[in-house]
Design a protein around this nucleic acid. Sequence first.
DNA 1: CCGACTTTGTGCGCGCGTTCACAAGCGCGT
DNA 2: ACGCGCTTGTGAACGCGCGCACAAAGTCGG
Lengths: 212, 212
Amino acid sequence: MPEATVARLPVYLRALNALAETGRTTVSSEALATASGVGSAKLRKDLSHLGSYGTRGVGYDVQELVFHISRALGLGQRWSVVLVGVGNLGQALAGYGGFDDRGFRIAALLDADPARTGELVAGLPIRLLSDLADVVRDEGVSIGLIATPAAGAQDVCDRLVACGVRSILNFAPTVLQVPEDVDVRRVDLSNELQILSFHEHRKAAEAEVVPA
Amino acid sequence: MPEATVARLPVYLRALNALAETGRTTVSSEALATASGVGSAKLRKDLSHLGSYGTRGVGYDVQELVFHISRALGLGQRWSVVLVGVGNLGQALAGYGGFDDRGFRIAALLDADPARTGELVAGLPIRLLSDLADVVRDEGVSIGLIATPAAGAQDVCDRLVACGVRSILNFAPTVLQVPEDVDVRRVDLSNELQILSFHEHRKAAEAEVVPA
DNA sequence: CCGACTTTGTGCGCGCGTTCACAAGCGCGT
DNA sequence: ACGCGCTTGTGAACGCGCGCACAAAGTCGG
Ligand SMILES: NC(=O)c1ccc[n+]([C@@H]2O[C@H](COP(=O)([O-])OP(=O)(O)OC[C@H]3O[C@@H](n4cnc5c(N)ncnc54)[C@H](O)[C@@H]3O)[C@@H](O)[C@H]2O)c1
Ligand SMILES: NC(=O)c1ccc[n+]([C@@H]2O[C@H](COP(=O)([O-])OP(=O)(O)OC[C@H]3O[C@@H](n4cnc5c(N)ncnc54)[C@H](O)[C@@H]3O)[C@@H](O)[C@H]2O)c1
């Protein structure tokens, strides 16, 4: 399964859920592609990696597709995640309702600041970072979210890896060094802004050269 | 300039700034590549798109590279951004200090909820969404951040586009429909988690087949 | 039952991006 | 001055992913 396809499956899944809520039972590749912001050929090729679940002349059954994509993504089970760093961003993440809907459960909130231990955030008590090993073992955690400042991110990452966590989502603006069997995905706001800045800059330059 | 290269330039820039703070004045492609999590050949090819600013046998001058990458990304000027949707996530974004450092200024906070108008968040008053056109004109806003629920995102997006904003960073889990001269980048947390879920799932399946 | 229409699944060619490998270039020690 | 070692910049090969285009396959109306 191509990595590029995997990255798009969640988008399709969301579009399908939205369609299901409107009562649609079937959808064509063209319609689903438009709703997902991709071309229809690409969509069909992506779906073909899951098997042949479409009906020629009709399209795809919405529920069936939801099931197969969910299964391919491993969403059959509920994944437990641990959130490290309950600051500005961490609190927003803890209070976000969009996790539960999609099969993810925040098992615990950890922070290095002892002054915050015991504080309730979104119904969960903040625990000390030193509890990490216990949390991972007891709660069956397999995904770690890092929302600490950049300075502490690598250390937190190393601890997660030492506890057996092999999937990490990193919000700190750092490139984490990990063993090759560990997956790290970065969400970096400033990066995104700078990429937008580049294009905005380019557009402005073009408008300069060709004013009318 | 290849899009893939543009997406990596901010990463190099951050690594360079970190190096500069340690007092390093020059850096080899090998060292910078490791710090950025890429291969050295890829790094050199990326940098070659900016010009030839390295010295053979020595490496790159850190400050000089910072300058050239910043210029290529259009970071010479301060970009004004408007944040729409000051909820859970919006507040975290408003309070984030990482914008100013990198040349971005939050010009205004907008929300549809009249009950919150005037409330101060991170030193800025929340204004009504209907002020959007004024804000964009008066503050020279060129980038919009959407942090509203998915249901309102497309409407907000349309308003931004109508006001002349051509670069949008979307945190809502929706695919926005925009004219082709508008750039939209998505930051979707659930997407990232589901991609991690896929790999975790796959790793677990492999461990099952080959237990030892 | 048949023919027209719709939509899937995919073979194929192409273009972009990555990687390898090395010649050219620069500094430094002698 | 000169050669040695290090590092850049890049040509060339490779591989992946994208989009086109179409045959296969199914539906639906008559
Ligand atoms: N706030 C945002 O909107 C935003 C946006 C993009 C990126 N980020 C990034 O997310 C990260 C967190 O941002 P924030 O605004 O929440 O910062 P913050 O300072 O508000 O919160 C950081 C929290 O992490 C805790 N912490 C510090 N070191 C730790 C460690 N080693 N182990 C465990 N916990 C530790 C602190 O006690 C604090 O509670 C930063 O790296 C920031 O760059 C934040
Ligand atoms: N909280 C998180 O950590 C998190 C993580 C990932 C994604 N998101 C996404 O970010 C978005 C915001 O999440 P949140 O947790 O802050 O939600 P929230 O409900 O806390 O805040 C939403 C804010 O947007 C305002 N709003 C609603 N409709 C609006 C409109 N049409 N125009 C202007 N403002 C409007 C509301 O008044 C509210 O203040 C959602 O789409 C969510 O899926 C949030």
